[in-house]
Amino acid sequence: MYTIGQAAQKVGFSIGAIRFYERKGLLEPAARSEQNNRLYTDSEINWLVFIKCLRETGMRVEDIKQFANMVMAGTATLPERIKIIQDQKQKLLDDIEGKKSQLVQLERKLERYYNDLVCVGTG
């Protein structure tokens, strides 16, 4: 079991973010210690890591909530969940292609500037 501070550090979230996701219903309310501190299991840590992944790929909190509800509903929702993850994967692949294109443009501009610098330096 992990305290909220340990969970936050392990996942790379702030404590406030974990509390936020709990309030939004993306995370079941945490078990509590005798001192009333939140405690998280490895399974909950893994779920937080997945939430972080989805957020980093641009998924909205509301959409993650819908996905979480599907998970809680059980295996009957697997086809829908697969579609959501496939769509998010495609969105990420499209973003990567866009970033590659931007990188090529920056590299071309740098090459031009370096060439201009060499010409100015020899002139």
Rank of each mutant, 00 (worst) to 15 (best):
Q86P: 03
L78E: 12
I84F: 14
L92A: 14
V11E: 02
Y40F: 15
I84A: 11
Q88A: 02
D42R: 08
Q86M: 08
V104Y: 14
M1L: 10
R108P: 01
F13W: 05
N115G: 07
L54A: 12
D42H: 09
Q105D: 14
T75F: 05
N69W: 06
G25I: 06
Q102M: 08
E22S: 04
E56H: 15
Q86H: 12
F67N: 10
K91M: 07
G25P: 13
W47Y: 10
S43M: 03
N37D: 03
Y2Q: 10
I82G: 10
Q66G: 04
G58H: 10
V71L: 12
K99S: 04
I64E: 03
V71S: 07
D116G: 05
Y114F: 13
Q86F: 07
N46L: 09
K89D: 07
D95R: 13
R60C: 08
E44V: 07
N46D: 15
F20Q: 13
E56C: 14
Y113C: 07
G98I: 03
E22C: 03
S14F: 06
D63N: 13
R32D: 05
L103I: 15
R23S: 12
K10M: 13
L106W: 04
D42F: 06
R108Y: 07
Q6M: 08
R19S: 11
V118K: 11
E44Y: 01
K109I: 13
G74R: 01
L106Y: 06
L110M: 14
I64K: 04
N69P: 03
F67W: 12
T75D: 15
I51W: 12
T57S: 03
I85A: 14
R32T: 05
T57C: 03
I96H: 04
Q102S: 09
F67S: 12
